[in-house]
Design a protein around this nucleic acid. Structure first.
Lengths: 332, 332
DNA sequence: TTGTAAGCGTTATCAA
DNA sequence: TTGATAACGCTTACAA
């Protein structure tokens, strides 16, 4: 955009203040004057410079979001909910993926300088930088991490779902379990899932870590696990993608799921419904997490609320066929 | 961020011009002076305001991207490639999803005012607005649409792949085909796929439109198609998601794929490898499309290049098991 | 109801 | 080598 408020003012024969007022409705403007201004705006195809507006208003009307990687449906879904609500609230969304980046701190600081508030996933941002951001007064909302002072946190319930899942598997009669995708960091969603399942199952479950929570890593780890001497009867996975990898590994080894080994996931991504067998999993409201994050951030930014809030959304056990045979077929 | 260049200048006992020079290395600064400045910057934890910098520099150091919806892996993958390269080039990425939005034009204009250039998918933006953006000199790159003057376009090859796919299916002996997800708009990827397949198959293929290119829509349309009197032997789908829906429909109807009906997709998304049966599809380099778009935009913005360029990336037929039985099993 | 002018936080030109 | 100062494009008291 090239034409400025000065040219509009000149053309309309008024001052720039009047143009601004007429356009924003922020002060009294005579009907006839408004007419002239709007006409000039129309003719010149004027759009106020975002930079000018932001500088004067002291706000960006934009939100940031920091995620490790966009691969996989989980982050995408959250992003979708976030962008939708942000847009409703008149805010753009600036994204930043940290995976494989050097100088993450610089990137995040730059991002923080472009927006009014930040949504951050789990422990994507180094703790010292988080502290600094809080100290600088940057509005922050975290998804999937433990509460901290000075920022909102938002997460899905994990422990109770883990217990429900464990109970369901126990009901199938399984006695030897493995947790595939054992947590690498503590304090995040996966760690809670692991703790929950373990506390319900006791010593009957073994932790099997994966490099990342991806299909490929799940595949590799499951191949070793299932090919080994001590095959578990049921594999509880950290999330659906790892579980899909496990399904693949089982197939390659000629094992039937759930006949030879049961497999469960977590999240309920699209592919969980389309895999064979369909995945038993725990559904978490990914899109809603994003939507709520956008609203929370807005509250923090506008000052409607100034004390941090820590919210936990409920989840739902989705029983499909990968965990064992059920008397009457369940479908979703 | 709160501290300005003035406070740094005062603390260092120099002028703001000197601070700016010292920080950007854009003019001569005495070693001792630089020291003082850096010290003050450090102590005050100063970061130049992005708004101030952008206003003075006359550039945003940010790119925009406009997509219909982020649901599904296609857009995500492209976005991933785009953001990665943009970040390398020192540019942030501002996203805009248009699906379900009223006042799309306003949103897009706002976005255009926040960035130095825009990546736009297909026909997401109304043609008159495209023309206006071109006229205003906004740098534009399109993915998956026909070339137009004043902007770069980038797409994957479709016609030859369609012919290859058709030939492969014909090789299986099929004679009655359906194209599921028939194009609603012309001039985009899906239309090219349809035209390509049809020109190879002649009258033997029937067009079956879907409301959207999603699993659910694919499912619905496929259910009607497969449940009808005139079941095709092979269903060529507009993309993998529609194909996954078709797979689901076949299963629900008790039909074996590929025994009773063959199904093929397009794109080669993650789920295509994990479905049962695994999808025969055409792989297009989604991430590379995004990466190239970012570079193209950068060339346009920096002025390294000023004539539009229209690029077509090659694709690859990926034969798996959903299209029929193969003598020796193919895997990917 | 309208205009003048002081910010907002930088960069960069031009003198000194 | 450094410092005033004029942009950059807007919003918004404050005066008129």
């Amino acid at each position: 955009m090239d034409v400025t408020i000065y040219e509009v003012a000149k053309r309309a024969g008024v001052s720039i203040a009047t143009v601004s007022r007429a356009l924003r409705g922020t002060g009294p403007v005579a009907a006839k004057t408004r007419e002239k201004v709007l006409k000039a705006v129309e003719e010149l195809n004027f759009t106020p410079s975002r930079l000018g507006v932001s500088l004067a208003e002291g706000r960006h009307a934009a939100n940031g979001i920091v995620f490790p990687d966009l691969a996989g449906p989980y982050y995408t879904e959250v992003l979708l909910g976030y962008e939708e609500v942000a847009s409703e609230l008149g805010r753009s969304v600036v994204i930043l993926s940290t995976k494989g980046r050097t100088k993450v701190n610089d990137l995040i600081k730059d991002l923080a300088g472009r927006v009014d508030g930040l949504l951050i996933f789990g422990h994507t941002v180094p703790e010292p930088l988080v502290a600094e951001l809080v100290r600088l007064g940057v509005r922050l909302v975290f998804i999937s991490r433990e509460p901290l002072p000075g920022a909102d946190t938002l997460r899905s319930e994990n422990t109770a779902s883990a217990h429900a899942l464990a109970a369901h598997l126990t009901g199938h009669g399984y006695e030897r379990f493995a947790f595939l995708g054992a947590p690498l960091t503590s304090q995040d969603d996966v760690d809670e899932r692991w703790q929950g399942v373990r506390s319900a199952l006791g010593g009957a479950i073994e932790a099997v870590p994966t490099r990342e929570y991806t299909v490929d890593c799940g595949f590799e780890a499951a191949r070793d696990l299932l090919g080994g001497r001590n095959r578990p009867e049921a594999i509880v996975c950290s999330d659906d993608e790892v579980a899909l990898g496990a399904l693949l590994a089982a197939e390659q080894l000629g094992l039937d799921v759930p006949g030879d080994v049961a497999v469960t996931g977590w999240d309920d991504i699209m592919a969980a419904r389309h895999s064979r067998p369909a995945l038993t999993t725990v559904r978490q409201p990914m899109r809603e997490l994003g939507a709520r994050a956008a609203r929370a951030l807005d509250e923090l930014i506008t000052g409607v609320r100034d004390t941090p809030r820590h919210l936990i959304l409920t989840t739902e056990l989705v029983v499909r066929s990968s965990c064992g045979h059920h008397p009457q077929e369940v479908s979703t």
